[in-house]
């Protein structure tokens, strides 16, 4: 059988992870991970020039492997952006290959189950299907949870949570998948946005809230920061920059609204992830930190740092 580069690397990566886990056990991987960062700064891994799954394999290895974030028997949620009924080539949704790879690795790390969901804007069924994410997740052994913000029957799956730190948003109804899981991964796609200017890791949290209309009606930028003060923060933010939506965000009309950048950013620091994503794509989007005010608002809540040059340990991988 002829193997192309992607398949080869995939196999290699999978074998590597399996091998490490089998020989050293999870603790060893953690030790190794701690060794990589002695600075005490949060890690930020940026990878480029690879396929989404290959980039993720390399990036997560640099962070110490998926086992650092997921323990055996845990219930895990992966929250990608599946907002729009668009094919993968228009980067309105997170890349399905990336989501599939994440789910696969989490399952291999011994998680009890992986749930994937988003509160879509378009017809949820079409979004799940046409984005390719449903297919990829089911193939990788995960489970899609269906929700529809336009149908009040789904409201029972959202529970009210207090946000004591929030300035505008004092409470929000959050999907029970997030509230009931052990850890969750935030997997946004890097896009420009008409209202929030940038939609990335922080903005992606709007997808766990019932009826986000209040965000728009009472100050979008501050509300995004407010929802990020949720006690149950994502354990890791994985920014999909394989294709970046540079115009007509957050939906995009056509493939040429996006650019193929083959980028991926991983960070435990949600603010740093957004800042880095914004800075690196500046040439395409033309955005500055002043535009996307929710990022600096997040910094004020001490959710992370925008000073990526000094306060973040950046690991750069070019494939």
């Amino acid at each position: 059988m002829k193997m192309n580069r992607k398949e080869f690397l995939q196999t290699l990566g999978a074998a590597g992870i399996a091998g490490t886990a089998a020989i050293n056990g999870l603790d060893a991987v953690e030790l190794f991970a701690q060794d990589t960062n002695k600075t005490g700064k949060p890690d930020l891994v940026v990878v480029r020039n690879g396929e989404p799954d290959v980039m993720f394999q390399n990036a997560i290895k640099a962070l110490g492997g998926i086992g650092k974030f997921v323990k055996k028997g845990q219930k895990v949620v992966v929250k990608p952006n599946i907002g729009w009924d668009k094919p993968p080539k228009i980067p309105a949704n997170t890349n399905p290959i990336l989501v599939g790879e994440i789910v696969k690795q989490i399952m291999e790390a011994g998680a009890k189950e992986v749930v994937v969901f988003d509160t879509s804007c378009d017809n949820p069924k079409s979004c799940y299907q046409n984005s390719g994410i449903e297919n990829a997740v089911v193939k990788a052994g995960g489970r899609m949870v269906f929700t529809d913000k336009k149908d009040r029957a789904y409201r029972k799956y959202y529970r009210e949570v207090q946000l004591p730190e929030g300035i505008i948003l004092k409470k929000a109804e959050i999907h029970e998948a997030i509230l009931d899981c052990d850890v969750w991964f935030n997997v946004p796609v890097l896009k420009v946005h008409g209202g929030a200017k940038l939609t990335c890791a922080m903005k992606n949290l709007m997808g766990i809230v019932w009826e986000p209309r209040i965000f728009h009606s009472s100050g979008l930028q501050q509300c995004i920061a407010d929802i990020c003060t949720l006690t149950k923060k994502p354990i890791l933010n994985i920014v999909d920059g394989y294709r970046i939506l540079k115009a007509n965000g957050p939906q995009g009309r056509t493939e040429s609204d996006g650019v193929l950048a083959k980028l991926q950013i991983l960070s435990t620091d949600i603010v740093a992830a957004d800042t880095y994503a914004l800075e690196i794509s500046k040439s395409q989007t033309g955005l500055t930190l002043d535009d996307a005010k929710h990022i600096s608002a997040g910094e004020k809540f001490k959710l992370g740092t925008t000073d990526i040059k000094n306060k973040v340990n950046i690991i750069r991988i070019s494939l």
Binding site: V46, R48, N49, K89, G241, R243, E255, S256, G258, V259, L260, A261, K262, L263, I280, S281, S283, Q284, I314, R316, S318
Partner: peptide
Amino acid sequence: QQTIELDF
């Protein structure tokens, strides 16, 4: 769709 390479 354009293909670009972004600088770190």
